[in-house]
């Protein structure tokens, strides 16, 4: 079975972004970029399924600027066999990405697509579900456990209040939650090997997809700042402040 894993290049999760002074967006020039953490988990899961002999091939794909190639090389260093980049400088929103991915799925015919549950830049949490809808496939979002057997995927999901388990008919879409696995560190030999793996580049036009953004961002502002707090010397003062100053207890 083939597994397709979409990955996104995002601002590294440790970076605290700043809003541009003209409020047109956040300043991501000269900021460290990395693979979206949920996508690393997705690549790791696909690689493990391959190591178990369940999957035959893992294909990593990304949509965006030329530098996304680095993200795809990382995916191949973790264990993806080959990669494809849909290269464009356009501002890609989840619906456009889902359409590009659908075109890639139609081309590659995977039985399973594993995505991250959300990207930590736009925090949308949409692409996997949208791709499932466009393909007419079942979905299991926020997965913390995935088992493949007899043409079905048994997936445990993290939901409000606990866990639930679903059985999906393949082909299917799975999106990863944090606790699905712990992604491995990429080793230097694997980084070197990844450089030799196949990386195809296409454009949205090749795939016949219109990627024009549907949502217009009017402005981006700083969240309201909290007024500076104080240190209290002991528990008694804390209780007094909460009762008489903040009046929350």
């Amino acid at each position: 079975m083939k597994i397709l894993v979409p990955v996104k290049r995002v601002v590294d999760y440790n970076v605290k972004v700043r809003v541009k002074s003209d409020q047109s967006g956040v300043d991501i020039a000269n900021v460290k970029m990395s693979m979206n953490p949920f996508d690393e988990i997705a690549v790791e899961e696909a690689t493990r399924l391959k190591e178990k002999g369940v999957a035959a091939e893992v294909i990593a794909v990304s949509c965006g600027v030329a530098q996304c190639q680095e993200t795809l090389r990382t995916a191949m260093a973790i264990g993806a066999d080959r990669a494809a980049l849909v290269q464009t400088d356009a501002d890609l929103q989840p619906l456009a990405v889902a359409k590009l991915l659908k075109a890639l799925v139609d081309k590659e015919q995977p039985q399973l697509v594993i995505l991250g549950k959300q990207a930590i830049d736009d925090d949308a949490n949409q692409t996997g579900q949208m791709l499932a809808a466009l393909l007419g496939w079942p979905q299991a979002t926020f997965a913390s456990k995935v088992e493949l057997e007899d043409g079905k995927a048994k997936v445990t999901r993290e939901v409000d209040g606990g866990l639930e388990t679903l059985s999906l008919t393949l082909p299917a879409i799975v999106t990863t939650d944090l606790r699905l696995n712990e992604p491995r560190y990429v080793t230097l030999p694997n980084i070197m090997k990844a450089k030799k793996k196949q990386l195809d580049t296409l454009t949205p036009e090749d795939l016949g997809v219109d990627v024009a953004p549907r949502l217009k961002t009017l402005n981006v502002s700083e969240p309201p700042a909290r007024s500076a707090g104080i240190f209290v010397p002991d528990v008694a003062t804390l209780v007094d402040k909460l009762k008489n100053e903040a009046k929350v207890i």
Binding site: P94, L95, A124, Q126, A133, L134, Q139, V159, R214, L215
Partner: peptide, 23 residues
Amino acid sequence: ATASGKNVAPRVAAKLDVAQISD
């Protein structure tokens, strides 16, 4: 924007061919 709402809403949006606005 709960686990359940986030699970279903994008599926509806994609079928309607509209962008979804999250959270």
